[in-house]
Design a protein around this nucleic acid. Sequence first.
RNA 1: GUGACCAUAGUUCAGUCGGUUAGAACGCCAGGUUGUGGCCCUGGAGGUCGUGGGUUCGAGUCCCACUGGUCACCCCA
Length: 416
Amino acid sequence: MKFRSIKGTKDILPGESEKWQFVEALIREVMHEANYREIRTPVFEETALFQRSIGELTDIVSKEMYTFRDRSDESVTLKPEGTASVLRAYIQYNLGEQSPLTKLYYIGPMFRQERPQAGRLRQFHQFGAEALGSSSPQLDVEMMLIPLEVCRRLGIGSVTLKVNSVGCEKCRPAYRKRLVQELMAVYDQLSEESKTRVKQNPLRVLDSKDERDRAATRTAPLMKDFLCDECRMHFAEVERLLKETKTPYEIDGRLVRGLDYYTKTAFEITSAALGSQDALAGGGRYDLLVHELGGKPTAGVGFAAGMERLMIILEKLGQSPDPHIRPDLYIAAADNAARRWAFRFAHQLRQKGVAADLDYLGRSLKAQMREANRQNARYVIVIGDKELATGKAKLKKMESGQEEEVLLTDLASKLA
RNA sequence: GUGACCAUAGUUCAGUCGGUUAGAACGCCAGGUUGUGGCCCUGGAGGUCGUGGGUUCGAGUCCCACUGGUCACCCCA
């Protein structure tokens, strides 16, 4: 009986972890340039936070959360997305009182208990941002530009930005009523899942992939044609900014995201390089959410993007960064006295910033050379009686095979 | 949660009609060179054929169940 990682979870092994570090560093750079500050929230929260923010009727809350009772019988949940926690912290620490606009970003693991498939895991990683305190459409567009910029710098060109407006509390109820009427007229032709959605969340029927639903809703009214003046102007401004920044986009009047809290802008970035789970990032505006979670009424926008999906695209496009993790120096020891010395010397070099390694297995010199080669070490020195006596050694450059006589005391400054 | 496909060495895979000791490549270890890597040559280690049951004289091979993986549905990052 061997232990295995739990279904839907993955280990990020050496060789891959370096790629993650590279991508994460790039994300932090882009976030920094747009002046977003990092926030790190706990991986779990009290269950009610997600129920209230994401919405009881959503798939995430109704069937995908990792929820359990802790030892004091408290119901806790591993976070299925990042926004709820960020807003909880924003409210808890009164961040809105310190400045009228707060720009935050995060990178971290999320959990959803779904059946794993290509681009979908039970523990996955997202990076995302939230801007709290402004209803400016500039921030809506900033949220689209950030993940697009990350893609651009990674050499990912083939992405599609889809944008829609889902209206607000003023215009959505009337539209919703109208839509339900239309859907009831074709009720019999809808898929089973859509039938239940007609009452619970009719907008979602529109973005069903089911052919029957597609056909039945072909002429259904779209939210973007029923927006109130404010929402319509907001959406027009988003479009204008996208054009001004020369950002290619499509309007998708059926785009509705799976979280209930969105108002006005909703968007999604997809890639054909992904499998059936083709969304790389998604986001939108949520002007009611902070108030709903107990804070002062505060406008907000955000996005979240999938790290694993980003890595899949990079791999597929052959753009995957090459990790060159390599020791500067491998110290090969010819005898036991040299082995003892080598450990001490490696320690001194490391303190001076030189990445140095040595043999811990008592192997032959030939095996040590092979190891140095496998580790892709930049240089090797071989230490024996002669070197310990004279304080000089041949420094071998592995790539060329050329050797150069050096003083051991000079080595650190030479390699650092 | 539903469905389809898959499971043989560290890895990627062969394995005939059910038949004797389960193979290859790469990787790993050692030697060829008693103080020098890669290339080459030689040798070696490494397998509960996912697990459990069944059919059969005999199962890696056929049947069933389970577990795991992959992909799709659903939904989403």
